[in-house]
C-alpha cells in the first residue's frame, strides 16, 4: 500500500492516480492531532490493514490531481540521517556507521518550497536519499531481526547548507533549517519493496538529471543501520532513518530551481527552491565535491 497525507494532512492511500480517504477506518484510534495520525496508523497497521484494503477497493476516491499532496510522514518524532553511507560507486571502502539528527520541523511535501536561509553557507546541496520509516517500537534489535521493524520507505532529500557554524564540530546543523527535509510522494509499505538495496534513486534539477544511483551502492545496509541506531535509542513508529546519499551527482540548489526526485516503486515528487537573497552558484553537478568524496574517507559537511 502507498500511504499519503493530503489537503489538511488527512491520511489516505494512493491507488494508481487516485487518492482514497482512510479516515473512516481510523475512528477506533481516538482523537488525533495532525501530527499524530501517521504514527498512530503505523503503530496500528496490522489491525487496520483489512479495513484499509477494503477502502482501497471501494472506489471512494478522488483524482490525485484534485488534492494537495502533503509529506507522507509530516512530523516524525526523530529523523536520523546516516553520515556519508555510500561507497561512491565503489570508490571508497565501507565506512563505520554514524548518524546525526535532522530537525523534524524541516519536513515539507510535494509541490512545497525549499526556502534558503540568509545564513552564509558556502553552498546548499541536494542529497537524494532512500528513507526508512520505522513500524514498531524497538530497542537494541539485531541486524537479523531489524527488517521486522520496517514499516515502509519514502523518497527524501537531505538539503544541506555547508560550512556553517564550527566547521570541525560535525554538528550537521546546516541540514536543519525549516523546509530542508522534502519527502514524498508516499510511504510505500515494506511489502511493496522486494529489495530496498536494489532501488534506483534519481534527482533532477530543472529537468537535468543530477543524481542517478542504485541503493546497491549503500555502504552499511539497512539492517545494520537499524541495529546501530536502536543500540543508542528507542525507535518508535514513524521515526525515520535516512540511509545516506551517493555524492556523485550532488549540485547546488538555488532560487527558482525546480527539483524532482524519484525512487522506483515509491514514486516521484517535486519541490521548488526560493532564495530571498537570490544568490547564485554554478548550475550542474558539483564535480569538486564528487571527486573529494571518491578520494577521501572524510565526509563533507
Amino acid at each position: 500500500m502507498k500511504l499519503v497525507t493530503y489537503d489538511d494532512f488527512k491520511p489516505g492511500l494512493l491507488v494508481g492516480d487516485r487518492v482514497v480517504d482512510i479516515t473512516p477506518a481510523l475512528g477506533g484510534l481516538g482523537p488525533l492531532d495532525w501530527d499524530e495520525a501517521i504514527p498512530a496508523i503505523i503503530a496500528n497497521y496490522q489491525k487496520l490493514q483489512p479495513e484499509l484494503e477494503r477502502l482501497s477497493r471501494s472506489g471512494g476516491d478522488v483524482p490525485l490531481a484534485s488534492v494537495r499532496l502533503r509529506a507522507p510522514n509530516p512530523r516524525p518524532a526523530k529523523i536520523l540521517c546516516a553520515v556519508a553511507n555510500y561507497l561512491e560507486l565503489g570508490a571508497r571502502p565501507k565506512p563505520p556507521i554514524d548518524f546525526f539528527f535532522k530537525s523534524p520541523e524541516g519536513v515539507i511535501g510535494d509541490s512545497d518550497t525549499v526556502v534558503l536561509p540568509r545564513a552564509e553557507a558556502s553552498i546548499f546541496h541536494h542529497e537524494a536519499e532512500l528513507a526508512v520509516v520505522i513500524g514498531k517500537e524497538c530497542r537494541k534489535v539485531s541486524a537479523a531481526q531489524a527488517m521486522d521493524y520496517v514499516f515502509g520507505y519514502t523518497a527524501f532529500i537531505d538539503v544541506s547548507g555547508r560550512n556553517l557554524g564550527r566547521v570541525q564540530a560535525s554538528t550537521f546543523f546546516g541540514k536543519s533549517f525549516d523546509t530542508f527535509a522534502p519527502m514524498g510522494p508516499c510511504i510505500a509499505t515494506a511489502d511493496e519493496i522486494p529489495d530496498p538495496h536494489k532501488l534506483q534513486v534519481r534527482l533532477w534539477v530543472d529537468g537535468q538529471l543530477r543524481q542517478d544511483y542504485n541503493t546497491d551502492d549503500m555502504g552499511n545496509p539497512i539492517p545494520d543501520l537499524i541495529e546501530w541506531a536502536s543500540g543508542y535509542m528507542t525507535l518508535n513508529p514513524g521515526d525515520m532513518i535516512a540511509t545516506g546519499t551517493n555524492h556523485q551527482g550532488l549540485g547546488a540548489l538555488q532560487d527558482g530551481d525546480r527539483v524532482e526526485m524519484e525512487i522506483e516503486r515509491i514514486g516521484r515528487f517535486t519541490v521548488r527552491v526560493q532564495d530571498p537573497l537570490k544568490r547564485s552558484w554554478p548550475k550542474g553537478v558539483d564535480e569538486a565535491l564528487a571527486a573529494r568524496m571518491r578520494g577521501e574517507t572524510q565526509p563533507a559537511r
Binding site: A77, K78, F100, G165, A169
Partner: peptide
C-alpha cells in the same frame, strides 16, 4: 568567543 553552533539531541533521552 568562538563561532556559534548547535546540534540536536534525541528527545527520547
Amino acid at each position: 568567543r568562538l563561532p556559534q553552533d548547535m546540534f540536536l539531541k534525541s528527545p527520547e533521552s
